[in-house]
Design a protein around this nucleic acid. Structure first.
Lengths: 222, 222
DNA sequence: GACGCCAGGCTTACGCTGTAAGCCTGGCGG
DNA sequence: CCGCCAGGCTTACAGCGTAAGCCTGGCGTC
């Protein structure tokens, strides 16, 4: 019967770089970088682990690939938008995308990433800044300052072990464990969080706007 | 002969958490996180890998420990210093320490770190900001903004694959590989770097001062 | 229609990892 | 003098990435 059809019995569609990366992305979203193994990835695709190596060089290439897939999700700044609004939207978009894929930020930062999506992302950012009047050097410095904040802040937020609505509870739990008399300012803050006087929620746009303000002044006063 | 001395023949000093962490730090400095293995660490100490588990719970505990050792190297802001100068020095000190231990920054950011040195570091930072007049919430936001930049920038710099004096050469090498016509602004920048019109060196203090400027304005205009 | 090629799978095997479980021994307190 | 136990050692296991080679079915070429 299968001889009548030109394809193999189950007619499973062949592997491809795209299918491998797509499955790897799903696996990473489900179980983090730690949950992404070659054997597991093969299983997900109905294939042995070693078969993957016909399509990707090694696991690092897969990691590079899925990071670029994530970067591709970040909405690029529109060419006709005011630079400051565009950069603000870009930062927030990147932040949200990286929160959606919690494993991606650490990966993105722990290796030089130069996939096509990343190059596009960088180029459109430089474009917006250059159009606004920044010099090449200024645009580079500005992009670096913004990216530092985006990546640094996002990673810090991802590693915060509690949900925002658990802050008060967490503070009440851990505050008594601190050696009494030490760390008075940490205690002060934890006390305010416990009492509901401060929600403890850290704000991405606070630092971003600080940087944007500084860049705007730089642009106005050459 | 060894029965005459009360200690074992070689009289090797016994293991301890400190010795283990100290050796682990040296190993990480030599070979990065990847080069730090329980077997290798044991060998370094003249001991079998499993013996380490009498002194540390597991490898993660070791990683937490050496990260805290690194944080302990960061000079704390002096209590009597002007807040802005203190914060600037703190940022630069942290940046330099993390460059000295290139593996530490990624580790620091990829896990919640609450060792004693880290608590000290955080508390003295909050102290400086509170003394300057920031509210608890403002001090928290400010510390977060500064730390985001410190960690984010340092990690980006660590992942830059070239030395600053190789930028021009690297640009000349990779520029022809880009698909012609695409990424015009990356090409523009690379061209300037190649021509020596821009050194391409990214500056830590650029973004740091942007943030500090913003914080100073916040302090002056409540 | 026969034949050889080779893309794209599969199998086996190696060295490496962290660590669970248990053993052995020498010095010390009672 | 005896028993305890801190602090080492040994063995073993499951899981990792991947090198090397095999096997098969469809395709292009004569």
């Amino acid at each position: 019967m299968s001889s009548q059809t030109p394809t193999t019995p189950a007619a499973r569609e062949p592997l491809s770089v795209e299918r491998v990366l797509r499955a790897a992305l799903a696996l990473a979203d489900a179980g983090g970088t730690h949950g992404l193994t070659m054997r597991g990835l093969g299983q997900e695709l109905g294939v042995e682990a070693m078969s993957l190596y016909k399509h990707v060089a090694n696991k690092d290439a897969i990691l590079d690939g899925i990071v670029d897939l994530v970067v591709a999700e970040i909405a690029l700044p529109a060419p006709d938008e005011d630079w400051r609004a565009a950069m603000r939207r870009r930062g927030i978009a990147a932040h949200q995308v990286l929160l959606r894929h919690p494993w991606a930020c650490a990966l993105l930062m722990s290796r030089p990433t130069v996939g096509p999506a990343m190059l596009n992302y960088v180029d459109s950012t430089l474009a917006s800044l250059r159009r606004a009047g920044f010099t090449v050097a200024q645009a580079d410095h500005a992009a670096n300052a913004m990216d530092s904040h985006i990546y640094g802040f996002t990673l810090q937020k991802l590693n915060s072990p509690f949900d925002p609505d658990q802050y008060a509870e967490a503070a009440a739990t851990y505050l008594p464990q601190l050696p009494p008399g030490s760390y008075p300012h940490i205690v002060e803050m934890a006390t305010q969080v416990m009492a509901g006087e401060y929600d403890g929620v850290i704000d991405f746009t606070f630092g971003l706007d600080l940087t944007l303000n500084g860049l705007e002044r730089l642009l106005r006063t050459p």
